[in-house]
Write a protein that binds this DNA or RNA. Structure first.
Lengths: 243, 243
DNA sequence: CACTCAAGTGTAATTGAAACACTTAAATTT
DNA sequence: AAATTTAAGTGTTTCAATTACACTTGAGTG
């Protein structure tokens, strides 16, 4: 079989996954302590080596499955990282993916056995190698993507309230939005189906649950979609100048 | 050195470059006939294997240099392609880049010695492997990118006219724009410096040359930029529904 | 029964984008 | 030298989308 490219170099190829979750009003990252050398014990994103017989997507799904026990995860390729000395062990090319998971769905125990932990994106520690770069790139990509695809739903439980959805958008963009404008705009897309049931944890009055309409979602995925709002005047959560 | 990952698989890693140019009012792609097996003689984008001692960017620049003789090329990573059987020769992962070059700057002779040829994006032939996929993804990325970064200049000669610039935008987006709105919007960005000289090839009256202002360009690259216009009513160049 | 807390709701003002047609400059033709 | 041709150049009005903004409602708590 190896008849064509015999003189060319071969490389280790890793897959690294930036895993986002949303919990308690915060956008979070699933991080873990690396269990092998080099850099054993330091914080990193979840990764593994690409195997001979699997595609990039398959590799990423395998790694996500290992960590979370979940098979049906929203996932996209982010970018490849290939500086010669990025991995001090050996020259390794990393193909990074980003993924969105519903924190409640997640089998936390499984993640725990890997030493994994949810960390707020506002408190990301020093990570190994170029993983902080990957995370920043992932965040940027997520922020861009959510404008043109309603992927917020991938981070929420099946039933959710409008205040929850708004707080998710605010957590992702690190800026507050006007409640009336947000509700108007998101409802007029038709993406949300109102339930009769109310969520009563976070207020006395209770907020109606919604589910997102999978038909409309598919439609928008094909036809295109645009959902963006300026932040409330004088209310950037941080000194955060997004572009 | 090879002490850490000895049990892991290694892979051939290729770099493939989608090279865009603009000439005669058309957006073009630099394609070439493959000079080695497998698929020798078929159309492909320019590529090569990643070497042990070079980063991804360095690899891409080496390949662009080989083909065009140019060192200072606008270039971005596109995406990695890693289906197990994408290359019928052997399992090879390709990391694709896209690049913009000024056709006139290009040492055409050098490209010719590689059997390279500019092909309009409206007439892209069947390419080897998954290269047609790469090209489509590259086009999509270029179309998205030009909204938020004024990279059109990378495709034009140093001095260019407003009609030329508009025709570039129209070629990229495959739709016609209103002349008055286009000029107004692009001029009010301040990105363009008007020259005293006129271009006289394409009209009797002649059109003023402009150069783009590098200071402002840098500023916009940092601060963010947005330039998008709807197509002229009833004037899509093709039945092209862009999203 | 008063109070508290977050959920829920509509309109006016402003801004930004799109639509639209004639004049000008210079070369070419008669 | 006058008439014709060709593409360049130029402002204003209209319309649509987004933003700003404040009070009422419902239900649990003390």
């Amino acid at each position: 079989m190896e008849i064509f490219y015999i003189d060319e170099d071969k490389h280790y190829v890793a897959i690294d996954c930036i895993i986002f979750g949303f919990d308690a009003g915060e956008l979070k990252l699933l991080l873990l302590k690396r269990k092998f050398e080099p850099a054993k014990g330091e914080w990193s994103v979840m990764g593994g080596f690409l195997k001979r017989e699997e595609s990039l997507d398959e590799g990423a799904r395998r790694i996500l499955l290992q960590l979370t026990g979940l098979t049906d995860i929203y996932m996209e390729q982010l970018q490849s990282f290939g500086d010669v000395n990025r991995d001090p062990g050996e020259r390794t090319i990393s193909i990074a993916f980003w993924a969105l998971i519903k924190v409640n769905d997640n089998d936390i125990k499984l993640a725990k056995t890997h030493g994994a932990q949810w960390v707020s994106i506002e408190k990301i520690p020093q990570l190994i190698f170029d993983h902080n770069n990957m995370v920043q790139k992932g965040l940027k990509t997520l922020r861009n993507k959510i404008v043109t695809k309603p992927i917020g739903f991938e981070l929420l439980p099946e039933k959710f309230t409008l205040p929850q959805l708004q707080s998710l958008y605010e957590a992702i963009n690190q800026e507050q939005m006007d409640k009336r404008n947000f509700r108007k705009r998101i409802l007029e897309t038709g993406l949300l189906d109102k339930m009769e049931e109310k969520e009563k944890q976070s207020s006395k009055k209770g907020a109606y649950y919604y589910m997102f309409n999978k038909e409309k979602y598919r439609l928008f995925a094909e036809m295109g979609f645009h959902f963006q709002m300026k932040a409330k005047k004088d209310s950037l959560i941080k000194g955060n100048c997004q572009v």
